[in-house]
Write a protein that binds this DNA or RNA. Structure first.
Lengths: 194, 194
DNA sequence: TCCAGGCTGGACCGATCGGTCCAGGGAAGG
DNA sequence: CCTTCCCTGGACCGATCGGTCCAGCCTGGA
């Protein structure tokens, strides 16, 4: 292969690069707000290449982008909770981490998968994918909650994500990461990691 | 005037009807996902008419639609809190009301103004409008919180909206109003209105 | 009665949308 | 060295996008 624009930079395939760039664009501008031309330009790839890797076009691309973004977020979650020994610490660490990322990325990017898949109106396929990703995150957090001896870890995890989703929305509206940092307080937890 | 398609039904002006229909469409399909043709069809109005009332086209329309939706939601909020004598009751009543509305409207419609204005990427005008609407709702709720003797009513109101926004998102993902009904529990309040 | 102007109806426009198609480049395998 | 095939590059397409323009209707005021 070997094209221009850093394809084999880290062994990253063209397909991965397209998915990643698409994910970042969808997150910023939404699904309908992002044109294929935007993705092409960001990934530095011609049309034929994109449609080779994603034969069903934009719909495929949305799912792949959501996959990428979901995995990325899952990594952040695991990072935050891995070193935590108490539930409060895990939630606080994650909240602050998300707030920081939000601010570093221009204080506009929302939840990666709701941004990507939700503007895609009543398409059941992408809605189901969204639910699956959210379940994965919830399970991951619930596992940590259980490890730390929380009662009803599933409910804890679900509640945390509800708060995070709300905070993400408010953070975008206010253009500040503060609502995300207020997640622990909303849940009645210690606001800072110990 | 007098056109077809229920213009003077309730003394409603053409402009109002367009704004309302646009609001409902934006809420369901997002800003970029809704075409002017959709709005035209829903409102039963020709192009010339729409552009007479909204000279700046879609951008104007988004702001007007958000106004309409914001006022509508504010009415729901006032309704829910008007008869409440305790904070818990107000929040529970509102949560259940929103859950019911969500389910009745096809379990898809999210927050009316974030749906409308957020897909509109980094446009500062609409972001500011979103913030203003949210402030209005927060103030209204804070007023009730103060009336009921809550400490720090502003923080209470802000927290409630954070939870509601998160619940709205989760309700859409799961296609059930349950997350909205779980808002009081998330906030550590009585889950049912007394 | 007639005039003026707000509003409607719809033809029309260029730009951009997502998507198709195929010629050819280039590495891998024989 | 030659064949094979995956992938690239980009020309091209019809549909749809948001938006413009203007003729004419209808109403309220003089």
């Amino acid at each position: 292969m070997a094209t221009l624009a850093a394809p084999a930079k880290t062994g990253e395939t063209t397909r991965e690069r397209i998915a990643r760039e698409a994910a970042l664009l969808f997150q910023r501008k939404g699904f309908h707000g992002t044109g294929m031309a935007d993705v092409l330009a960001a990934a530095g790839v011609p049309k034929g290449s994109l449609y080779h890797h994603f034969p069903n076009g934009k719909a495929d691309l949305a799912l792949a982008a959501a996959d990428w973004a979901s995995g990325s977020l899952l990594g952040i979650v695991e990072d935050a909770f891995a070193s935590a020994t108490r539930w409060d610490d895990g939630v606080a660490t994650l909240s602050h981490k998300l707030a920081k990322l939000f601010e570093e990325s221009g204080r506009w990017a929302g939840c990666p998968i709701t941004s990507t898949l939700f503007t895609n109106e009543e398409d059941e396929r992408s809605r189901a994918a969204t639910a699956a990703h959210l379940d994965r995150w919830t399970e991951a957090v619930a596992r940590h909650a259980a490890r730390m001896g929380c009662d009803d870890p599933a409910a804890r995890a679900e509640g945390m994500w509800m708060a995070v989703q709300g905070a993400w929305t408010l953070s975008r509206v206010r253009r500040t990461g503060d609502p995300l940092r207020r997640v622990p307080r909303l849940l009645g937890l210690a606001p800072e990691p110990r």
